[in-house]
Computed example of a mutant assay.
Amino acid sequence: MKRVAVLGATGSIGASALDVIARHPTALRATVLAAGRQVDALVELCRQHRPEHAVIADEAMLGRLRDRLRGAGLSTIAHAGDAALVELVGGDACDTVVAAIVGAAGLPSTLAAARAGKRLLLANKESLVLAGELLMAAAREGGATIVPIDSEHNAIFQCLPDAPARDGLARIILTASGGPFRGRSRASLRDVTVEQAVAHPKWSMGPKISVDSATLMNKGLEVIEAHHLFDVDGDRIQVLVHPQSLVHSLVEFVDGSTLAQLGLPDMRTALAVGFAWPQRIASGVSGLDLLAEGGRLEFEPPDLDAFPCLRLAFDALAAGGTAPAVLNAANEVAVSAFLQRRVGFLSIPAIVEDTLAALPAIPAVSLDALHDADAAARRHASRAVDDRSSA
């Protein structure tokens, strides 16, 4: 019986993870559920899944969580704050951790799970973009198994053999849907509205990640993740636009073979792989009928003139050190300003590029160095936003 901690339990990935867990009651059990501020939603999940522990990030809500659990007649123990979550994921409460807390807030618990040698189902981009070197070192030292849960990296995970056969790897090919503006020129993007940018043609996502998809920054962040996860240099990582979104990624080998993983775009497939690998278990996702999906698989190169954020991510990866943290922080500031209608769509890559140029990379020797780089990038990008919004 695998004992699973689901971090970010009230989000979409948490819901998918709990769906898969519920399908295998003799093999999987949710023992720790963690959420940010949604006490009522967390308590309802505790009613359904009966975990041993529930954690709310906001420490001011501990009393409310404890009272609601008691009122529901549950024996689930209430906890609050990062320190409690780190202690739970690093201890005996679980052996498998679904890391789906959004943003840098998920980094401490993710690192704790890696250091404790857990099976880590990783859905937190920031853990790798901000601190990829530190996280992978912690996983090696702790003996953790990291299974990426986003569809592209999970596809690569499934296609890549273990060493020494991995020595035959030639390159990794990440696929991108192209977002809502695929095929448009840079000039035509000047007057893009917020509503247009968040209208993804394939998925309903939050506004920030929708804008990242529209700029192709999300794919740039995935390039950085792939470098850390699979120990592959940036010059052996390629991105192809694939509008059908059925081929999730491909792996090419030196003998000319290329392996691809295909499937419907449903996170439960990747989560089932993470829980059971190298075995396979039912996820609740149906098989892929290519004829029903249109019978066509199309690929095209990304337009780096129209979507320079992807190029900037490759540049940050090549610079190394703190550059990916600077890239990520500047992008968050710029996207937030765009969503607030303070700057235009094309200002997003311009602000990121300006911030990268202003803050040269230094070695990412510690979390403190990364936090400092993140803070400096946010200050610089915020000034750039002010300059553009007042012009």
Rank of each mutant, 00 (worst) to 15 (best):
C159F: 07
Q48R: 15
L262R: 07
L69D: 08
I281P: 05
S286G: 15
G36T: 04
G321D: 14
R341Q: 14
S185G: 04
R119V: 12
E332I: 02
V129K: 01
A375Y: 08
V251S: 04
V232Y: 06
L297H: 10
C309M: 11
L370S: 12
F307Y: 10
G117E: 07
H380R: 14
P278N: 11
P324H: 01
I13V: 15
A384N: 00
R64E: 14
R166I: 11
N218Q: 10
M217K: 08
A139T: 02
A369P: 03
E52I: 04
M267S: 07
A112R: 11
L135T: 05
L69E: 00
R379H: 12
D58M: 00
G142I: 08
G91N: 12
D387K: 14
L62K: 14
L229Q: 00
N328L: 08
L339P: 08
G90F: 08
E300V: 00
T269F: 05
T96K: 09
H227F: 10
D82S: 15
S177V: 06
F181G: 00
A83K: 10
A292L: 15
V4H: 04
T258E: 05
L45F: 03
A270E: 03
L69K: 07
A375N: 12
D305E: 14
R388E: 13
A114N: 03
D289E: 03
M267F: 00
A131I: 05
A83H: 06
R64T: 13
D162T: 11
N328E: 10
D58Q: 08
E252K: 08
A187N: 06
A376W: 12
G263W: 06
A364H: 06
A170Y: 13
I348T: 08
S257G: 09
D231I: 01
S16D: 12
T175H: 01
A15P: 01
A54Y: 01
L122A: 07
T31G: 05
R236N: 10
E298N: 13
